[in-house]
Amino acid sequence: MTLQLSEREHRLFEEWLGEEFGLRFGPEKREILRSRLEPRRAELGLDSFEELYFHLKFHPARQEEWDRLIPHLTNNESYFFREVGQLDVLSSEIFSNVRDRLEKSGRRELRILSAACAAGEEPYSLAMLAHDSGLFPAPWSVRVTGVDLDPQILDRARAAAYTSNAFRRTDESLKARHFDRVDEERWKIKPAIREMVAFRRANLINESWTREIPAQDVIFCRNVLIYFGEESTRKAVEGLYRALVPGGYLFLGHAESLSRVPTRLEAERRPGAIFYRRPDRNG
């Protein structure tokens, strides 16, 4: 018999998950939330979701308990070179604009952030694009940082090994150039690209994460805000603003917009892509 998530239990989890992680599970997602919580409840042998709630809130090792729960709550579906229209704008226009700005500043390092990077497909895609652009040869360097809430998915990202599902939009010549075949099912990112990418944990609604990395030239935060409530979205967007250099670029998912979010970021449009910029210091 399926154990139901009561209305009261749903409210307890909805409030807690919103406060801690920004995740929104409204009334329409009650059954989805139940299905996400059930594996951990069953594993612990608890009789109700209320017991699971208090276990997660007050267990002495609650941080470890949260780490075990988070993989069940987040959506880590991704693949290489997703939403190609944005990537085309990045390659054809933004890389050269950023390089020009960096040359004037004297900095010879391109910094890109992939927020909610999942298993690493996006940050490695961005590293490959920067590498193949030819705009950042030595002594230039490219530093791509992937951040995510889920510690288990970050371990997978660091392993950098992928199966065919991750290559649904990957050109075969690019795959041959940047991947080594491990076995019949898996391909691994070559060292030259892996060395450009680092991973770390971050909670996007906690303002402290932006103090742990240098300001970024480009940020990708795609298909993340759609899972956040209004206040969590505001906090996340403010953090993304702080994480950008003046004049830096922010890309969101195609279904996401900042039109209802108070922000100083300015929207720009190109064929097939919308992105946002932090204004320059002088404008």
Rank of each mutant, 00 (worst) to 15 (best):
L12P: 08
E19D: 03
G22Q: 00
E28F: 01
E31N: 04
R36H: 03
P39W: 00
P39M: 05
H55C: 15
K57F: 12
P60F: 13
R62S: 11
L69R: 05
P71T: 10
T74S: 13
L87M: 04
L87Q: 02
S96R: 14
V98I: 02
L102Q: 09
E103S: 14
R107T: 13
R107L: 14
I112D: 01
I112F: 03
L113N: 04
S114W: 06
A119Q: 14
Y124H: 01
H131N: 14
S133A: 08
S133L: 04
G134L: 10
F136C: 01
A138Y: 11
W140N: 07
R143I: 07
V147Q: 05
D148E: 07
L154E: 13
R156P: 09
A157T: 02
A161P: 04
A161D: 01
Y162I: 02
T163W: 13
S164D: 03
A176C: 00
R177P: 07
D180S: 15
E185S: 15
K188N: 08
P191F: 05
I193D: 00
R194C: 07
R194Q: 15
R194V: 09
V197H: 06
A198L: 10
A198P: 08
R201G: 13
A202P: 02
N203L: 11
N206A: 12
E207H: 13
S208L: 10
S208A: 14
E212C: 05
E212I: 08
I213V: 13
P214W: 06
P214I: 05
A215Q: 11
I219C: 08
L225Y: 10
F228Y: 12
T233L: 11
R234A: 10
G239T: 05
R242I: 00
F251N: 08
E256C: 00
A267R: 03
E268I: 14
R270F: 01
Y276Q: 00
R277M: 05
D280W: 14
